[in-house]
Simulated assay, not measured.
Amino acid sequence: MKTSLLIAGSLALVPMTYAQDKPNIIIILADDLGFSDLGCFGGEIHTPVLDNLAKNGVRMTQMYNSARSCPSRANLLTGLYPHQTGLGHMDGSHPAWPKGYSGFRSNSDNVTIAEVLKDAGYFTAMSGKWHLGNKSNPILRGFQEYYGLLGGFNSFWNPAVYTRLPKDRTPRHYEEGTFYATNVITD
């Protein structure tokens, strides 16, 4: 089964299909990473796994950055400009503000890639930072499994600030002093 990798720039969207005739899709959004930092884009950082995935997949070459993480994340998840999703500003809910700044909307004019892929028979999962406001969450927006930070960044070492959804899922247990967000999100 072929895997396509779309590298844009702490979100990992990993929809996977059970069918052999559909490609797996992995989207990685890495905050605070320059476009040319990864080896597959000519960067000086040694990134052999990502380079190999990019070599054998599809790379985004015309993704528009919205200068901040959550508006860019809304853009990547929906294919819309951040103002069209309600995130012209950061993730807060501002109902009195104009529609483009009122917070991430959950309605038919703002569909996530996870909602579309789930409807197409894909299994959809997300790990990392949601940071799209508290009016919604990854499960309500098409992801079947989620682990990460619902808000903005908090701590690499404190498991209490991370959320596992749906709520009936049991998070993995880590011995005292072994929790480190980068490894746990990957797990």
Rank of each mutant, 00 (worst) to 15 (best):
Q20A: 13
Y101F: 15
G86F: 06
L80F: 00
L76W: 02
L13E: 05
N65G: 04
A120F: 00
D187L: 05
S102R: 13
N158S: 14
S136Q: 03
C40K: 06
S93E: 03
Y122Q: 13
P23V: 11
H89G: 10
I25G: 02
D187M: 03
A19M: 06
F143C: 14
C40I: 00
Y180Q: 06
V184S: 12
L140W: 00
L13A: 11
G148I: 05
S66N: 13
I7E: 04
S69K: 01
L87W: 02
L29W: 01
S127L: 01
F35Y: 10
R105P: 00
W130P: 03
Q84N: 14
A160G: 09
T186I: 07
R172F: 05
R141N: 11
I185E: 05
G86L: 09
G128E: 09
T112V: 09
A19F: 04
S72P: 01
R141E: 08
R141I: 07
N158Q: 08
D32F: 00
Y147H: 10
H89N: 12
L117A: 13
S10V: 06
M90N: 15
Q84S: 15
L140N: 06
G103A: 11
K22D: 07
Y180S: 01
C40V: 06
F153T: 14
N134K: 08
A30Y: 00
I45R: 14
E44K: 14
T78L: 14
S4N: 12
N134R: 07
G103N: 08
S72V: 07
